[in-house]
Each structure stands twice: as structure tokens, then as C-alpha cells.
């Protein structure tokens, strides 16, 4: 028996101009057009957004917990990557 379940979509909402789209959650929809409309109904009912993206969940390539050591741990002792070694000249407000 083939699956009758609609495919899953990931929803990204931009809350206002100038900000980036942020992952809000996921939903089911038969196709992209309906996914966009469902996203509007499920995730922007309370004025949460001004722009929506929907992406088929199946096309997202995600890192796995197994890769955590090799992916993320090496960054832990590289404090020089943080811009904290500079003296900020006096009077500079917007750095």
C-alpha cells in the first residue's frame, strides 16, 4: 500500500523587514502552493510574519549527532576567532 500521508514541509517566517527568515516549524501539505497557504494559516495567524518560505523537509541535508565531535568540537579552543582582542577606541559607538 502506498503512503497516503501528505509530504512534510519546513516553514520559515520572516517576522519583519530587515530580519532573516527563521525556522518556525513544519506541516503537511500535498504540494508547494498548499504548503505556503497552510503555513500562512498555521504560523502567521497572530501577525508573526511578513514573508514565508516553505521547503520540502526531504531536501534538507542535516548534520547528525554522530558528527558532532568532528563538526563542532574543534571550534571550542579557538578563542581568537572571537573579536575580543581589540581595544575599542574611545568614543566609537557603532562598531
Amino acid at each position: 500500500m502506498s503512503s497516503t500521508e501528505w509530504p512534510l514541509w519546513e516553514v520559515f517566517v520572516r517576522s519583519r523587514r530587515g530580519l532573516s527568515h527563521v525556522h518556525a516549524g513544519s506541516l503537511h501539505a500535498p504540494d508547494a502552493e498548499m504548503a505556503l497557504r497552510n503555513a500562512r494559516d498555521v504560523y502567521t495567524r497572530r501577525e508573526e510574519g511578513v514573508s514565508l518560505w516553505v521547503v520540502p523537509s526531504a531536501v534538507i541535508e542535516a548534520s547528525t549527532p554522530d558528527e558532532r565531535d568532528s563538526f563542532f568540537d574543534p571550534a571550542a579552543d579557538k578563542i581568537y576567532r572571537h573579536p575580543t582582542f581589540y581595544d575599542v577606541p574611545e568614543g566609537v559607538e557603532h562598531l
Binding site: 497557504r37 494559516d41 498555521v42 495567524r45
Partner: peptide, 11 residues
């Protein structure tokens, strides 16, 4: 038929 449609019709 689906939760998403439920919300759409309620809206």
C-alpha cells in the same frame, strides 16, 4: 481531513 485544513477553515 488534516490539522492544517482544520485551522484554515477555522480561520
Amino acid at each position: 481531513p488534516q490539522l492544517e485544513e482544520d485551522l484554515a477553515l477555522a480561520n
